[in-house]
Amino acid sequence: MEFYKPSTLQEALKLLNKYGENALVVNGGTDAVLDLTEGRVRPEAIVYIADLPELQSIGCEDRRVFLGGAVTYSRMEADPVLSGVRGLMECLRRLGSPTIRESGTAAGNIAKGATAADCSTMLTALRAEIVLAREGGQRRMALPDVFAGPFRTAIEPQELITRIEFPLPEENEGTGFVKYSRRRMQDIGKILVGARICVQGGVCTGGTVSLGAVNRTVVRSLDIEGRIAGKTLEEIREAVRAARPAEAVLRDSYFRHYKELAVSGAVCEALEAAWKDAVQKGAVQGKEAVL
């Protein structure tokens, strides 16, 4: 087993091209190193990318947020543009522990493809896309499409996530995130919900809702999205509570019954948070504020 610390993205991609499936990409290491120590992977090459200069940027251009592939959660938490994306901030605050957030990255969270991935759930609601680079080319992929199964993604072994992008929420858009877990801090979510909705004239004109830990992968809930469009907050509450999201396909487990009972309530809470955010942002902008 060889350890490589490439100094440029090109060099890293060359290594991934050479070693393919036998390479382990280590970014923050919070998941990847554990896979190594627990013997789940036995790579020929460890490719350490945390310091690659091409993966460090964070910012917003033409109302599009971009995050480099090696940007840590703690850098996201401290970013002034992202601080206005309430759902994402709530997601980060509940993610791991402060120490884990110093090392862990959103790109690593996506590449791992965990079922209960906090940040991937919120980024799915934010309609994020990733840029995947490989030697001699790159492609883009929308977030829920990346997830192929529990801990499986559509990312090829030769590819690296260089960038995550999502449209910055507009003034009348609000975001929310809800995580149900046994401990408030440092725990795996039992139910995760991300929401991004547009509120205009007292009704929700549309939005994106994502679910984590209730299906084989992080998913988008087109069912819930369809139920909330054109509705007031009270109507949304009623529509969401009427039935479980169709995408909450729960496997048999100790938590199944609890999740079945709780998932609609979690969706409701996330939508309420997103609604409140949209209305508050609208009020700050001097627009109509209808609750």
Binding site: F3, K5, V26, G29, T30, V33, L34, L36, T37, I46, Y48, A50, P98, T99, I100, E102, S103
Partner: peptide, 13 residues
């Protein structure tokens, strides 16, 4: 200067 868990951190890093 940043707290890191040394049990999930490779020496090479």
């Amino acid at each position: 200067g940043v707290p890191v868990r040394s049990c999930i951190y490779l020496t090479c890093m």
